[in-house]
Simulated assay, not measured.
Amino acid sequence: MGERAFALLFANVHLILSRNFPLALLSFFFLPFGMGNLFALPPLKFLHLTLYINTPYSSTINYTAQSIWLDIEMACLWRQLPEDCVSRILSGTSPADVCRILTVSKEFRHPAESNLVWNQFLPSDIHTILPSPINFSSTKNLFFLLSQSILVDDGKKAFALEISTGRKSYILSAADLSIFHSNNNNWTWKSIPESRFDKVGEVKEAERLEIEGKIRSEALSPETNYGAYLLFKISEDAYGLNSIPCETFIASGDRLLATNTATLDDTINRPLHALFYGNRLHKMKERVGLNTAPAAPSKRQDGWLEIHIGDFFIGAADTGNITMAVTEIKGHQLKGGLIVEGIHVRPNT
């Protein structure tokens, strides 16, 4: 079998076997052998596999008997491989792939749970991120602990790994943000049971909102699209928050990456308010030159509300600060009752 034939075989294995998850792993078994060792495998296996792959793609829906035969062949190949070799193969996949493998095959449990695999899914700078000490029984255990988020940077940030990919996300607490007039009587700082942080910030009475967060590009996962979201709640006695939409932006240095507008209080869910104050709200929105409806807040599974600040991309060589801001400085109306937990920076799905 020549190099070109092998390449075609490998490509077709990926294409066809991807329709059946357990079989898709077959393609990984060819990688660690090298061409010489590959051809040392019994020729009959390749004869059957080639016949299977040359079957027209449209007929692969009805391949039950062949797929059973290939499952058996995969098991035979699996038993010929050293455990650390299988671990190296699995470390080139993703956490989601390995978790699926663990659910469908007991044969893979030991190599799939090895530290060699899960070390590859942890960020290279993980030991500079983690608080010390932190207890974990295995690297896999540490990964799943981090997927639930932990507090870092003296409790000013929450750090988590996306469970399907291992990419990093952060929540910058309100205490870690730059908030205009947050140190005077306009804002109050308090602890509430719903927050993951020690304190949240609440607007008592302010004419303007200026909330800004910064995070280093190097702290995030490279080659990843991120979204930034303001996390907040509205107190029962809130006022003035829906007078005019907030303006949001994301910047890297002097370069503007995204702009948006969003409302902190959704008047769609309060029809009487919209009826009595709709005309005034329309006039106020004209101040920000709003031609489209601003984004409304959405409710998260943890009970907090969020508005989308914007999206940005982290390249492999990016450095410097990413700035994320939410402002409302054109309404000139007193407002209060906004409870800010922080800004969530997470990979886009």
Rank of each mutant, 00 (worst) to 15 (best):
L177I: 04
A96E: 12
S252K: 11
S252E: 12
T267W: 10
T188F: 09
L220P: 04
L70A: 05
A317W: 13
S124H: 10
Y229P: 00
L41K: 12
H48C: 14
A11D: 15
E73Q: 14
L334N: 11
G227D: 03
N269R: 06
A274F: 12
I244T: 13
T64K: 11
N54D: 12
A293P: 09
S59G: 09
N269H: 12
F29G: 04
G166M: 03
R109M: 10
H308T: 09
G278P: 04
L290F: 02
E202W: 01
L142M: 05
K233S: 13
A158L: 10
S18Y: 06
G320A: 05
D311M: 11
L8A: 09
T50S: 11
I211T: 11
T60S: 07
E328Y: 07
A174D: 01
R287G: 05
K190D: 10
W189Y: 07
F28A: 06
L231R: 11
M1V: 11
G289H: 09
F197C: 03
N184L: 02
F312K: 01
A158T: 02
P82W: 04
G155E: 03
H308V: 06
T267D: 10
N12P: 01
L151P: 06
P131R: 08
E83C: 13
A251M: 06
A325E: 11
K204W: 09
K233Y: 06
I179N: 00
D318F: 05
K214P: 02
E162W: 00
S94K: 04
A160Q: 13
F29W: 08
S67Q: 08
G253H: 05
V340K: 07
W118C: 01
Y57Q: 09
I89P: 06
T64Q: 09
L9V: 02
R300I: 04
Y52S: 08
S132I: 12
T327Q: 13
F10W: 12
P43D: 08
D302E: 05
I192F: 07
A219M: 11
I16H: 15
R270K: 14
I234S: 03
K157C: 09
R88W: 08
S67R: 11
F197I: 03
Q120A: 13
P271F: 02
I53A: 14
N321V: 02
S59Q: 15
P32T: 03
H308N: 13
V288A: 12
N62V: 05
I329F: 09
I72V: 07
I234R: 06
P245W: 01
I343S: 04
P43N: 05
K199Q: 09
N225K: 15
